[in-house]
Each structure stands twice: as C-alpha cells, then as structure tokens.
C-alpha cells in the first residue's frame, strides 16, 4: 500500500516534469574522442528547459567532456572530435556553418577553478556585455548583475580592484555573474564548488536555485548532496570496463533527481549513490 503510494508520487513527479518542459539541449548518439582515446560513447540525453540538470558520476566518467561539448569548449582542445548530433533549440551545434563564438554567447560556462579575468571587478562584468554589443548604461548593468548574483553588497566598494583580490567563493560568484551579463539561455557549470568551502558552496547553490526561473542550468558535481539540493534532473555517468578490458564511459541513468536518488533503476546507480564506489 505504502509502496504503491510512492510509485504514484514518483510517477506524477516525473509526469509533471515531462509535460511542463521541453528539451533545450539534445544529445543523440554523441561520442567524443581525444585523439584516438574515446572519452564518452553513445550518449542520448535531453536537457529540460528552465530546470537544473546535474551530471554525477565517478572521476573520468565523461561528465565534464559532455558538458564542454554543449558550448564547444572542447574545440579549444587539440584532437578532440565529436560524433553524433548535439542540438540547441533544434539547431545542430556542430553544423557546418556554426560559429562557436555564437554558441558560447548563448551557452555560458563556469569552470571548476574560479577564473576571473585579470581585470577589475567592474570590467569582469562589463567585458562580456561590451563585446556582445550591450547598448545600455554599463554602470547600471554592472550593479544589476552583481545584485542578481548576490555579490553587490560585498564588492560595491571594490569595483575597481582586481577580480583576483576577491575570496575564492566571491571569485566564483563573479564568474557566474560575468555569464549572467551576456544574458545566455543556458549556463553550464563544471564542478563550480569543488574548490570552495561549505559556506561559499551554499551561497552558490542558493544562487543557482534562484537563477533557474530564468535559465537552463547544467551542473557537473561530485557532491551527491549538492545534486539533490539543487537539481531537478540527474544524469548518472559511469566508467565501465567491458569484457575486452576496454574502458567505456556511458550514461547509465537519467531521471528526475528525486526518482534517481530514491528508486534508481540500475544497479550501478544504486551502488554509486549509496557510496559503494566512486
């Protein structure tokens, strides 16, 4: 009886998530190779719009690789090659005439280590807006964006100091703010809190939850609690070794976060989320 109730709940949650949203990013049979080394294989995944999607899985399971494909950051790595099809709002991201710069203007990225530009706090925000031809009042934009990123009160007296003079957590929020300034559709975050303390981590998580009203967020994380706290959907990636001793990274399971963490379908997912490996 109780079990039946849980199933109904789970079903209704997943149903509601399915019906309310449509995919903004879609991966069809995506494989990535670095030189001749395969990094991920045959990924099929729909990232729902205006939701937070978390990628979890052990190190080296290809989460970051897939994330970096969405805004073509892998283009900057020599020898990286993508097979399959990756679309954004139905448009092939790797189409013949696609300019990676145009992709990145719509799909921003925050990196593992905070990487403010070696410029002032103000310029860190203004840079992206300026190169994207923002026509409005720059001072107003900088203040609005910093308020949006819950950073204004902390940095309003330091606007002309180097972005590198801020604390690690502030730097990372500055990096998120810098992305907000270009008004993207999607924000990709590659383990944004792995170099931060718990308090800074919570602040960033609060920020992400607030931002998802307006943006689609994809976050790679090693922290399963973080995935549970911030995400609506979770994808579990795993590094598997097949019978011929070949490593194979694949997407094991993709489900609403509550479903994945309460009733995972796959054995590997169950083992990973219960802390048996990884």
């Amino acid at each position: 009886m109780r079990l039946g109730l849980v199933w109904v709940m789970v079903f209704s949650i997943s149903l509601s998530l399915h019906t309310q949203t449509r995919a903004i990013l879609q991966a069809e049979n995506v494989s990535v190779q670095y030189g001749s080394v395969p990094a991920i294989q045959d990924i099929n995944l729909d990232i729902p719009k205006n939701r937070v999607t978390a990628f979890i899985g052990p190190s080296g399971s290809g989460k970051s690789t897939l994330l970096r494909c969405f805004n073509r950051m892998n283009d900057t790595i020599p020898g990286a090659r993508l097979l399959g099809r990756l679309t954004f709002e139905g448009v092939d991201l790797y189409g013949r005439n696609v300019d990676p710069v145009q992709v990145r203007r719509r799909i921003g990225m925050v990196f593992q280590r905070p990487n403010p530009l070696p410029k002032s706090v103000y310029e860190n925000i203004a840079f992206g807006a300026r190169i994207n031809g923002y026509p409005g009042d720059m001072d107003e934009l900088v203040e609005r964006i910093l308020r949006r990123a819950a950073l204004w009160d902390e940095v309003k007296d330091k606007l002309w100091q180097s972005g590198l003079s801020l604390s690690g957590g502030q730097q990372q929020r500055l990096c998120i703010a810098r992305i907000l300034a270009i008004e993207p559709k999607v924000i990709l975050l590659d383990e944004p809190c792995s170099a931060l303390d718990p308090v800074s981590t919570l602040r960033i998580e609060d920020l992400l939850i607030e931002l998802k009203q307006q943006y689609t967020i994809v976050i790679v994380t090693h922290n399963m609690q973080q995935a549970m706290r911030v995400s609506d959907w979770t994808a579990f990636f795993n590094a598997e070794v097949d019978a011929h001793d070949h490593r194979k990274n694949r997407l094991v399971e993709f489900a609403p976060t509550k479903v994945l963490f309460s009733t995972p379908k796959e054995r590997a997912t169950q083992d990973y989320i219960s802390g048996r490996f990884g």
Binding site: V101, R104, N115, L117, F127, I131, N132
Partner: peptide, 22 residues
C-alpha cells in the same frame, strides 16, 4: 593561465578579442 583564455571565450569573446583585450 589557460583558464583566463577559457573564461574569456566562455562569455562569447572571439579569439582576437581574447588575445587583444585579455
């Protein structure tokens, strides 16, 4: 640092803008 270049590219800067302005 390479991260600085990536940060610039990730806000939609072209390679020329990244090099000349950052």
């Amino acid at each position: 640092p390479q991260e600085v270049r990536q940060g610039s590219l990730a806000v939609g800067a072209t390679k020329f803008q990244t090099i000349s302005r950052i």
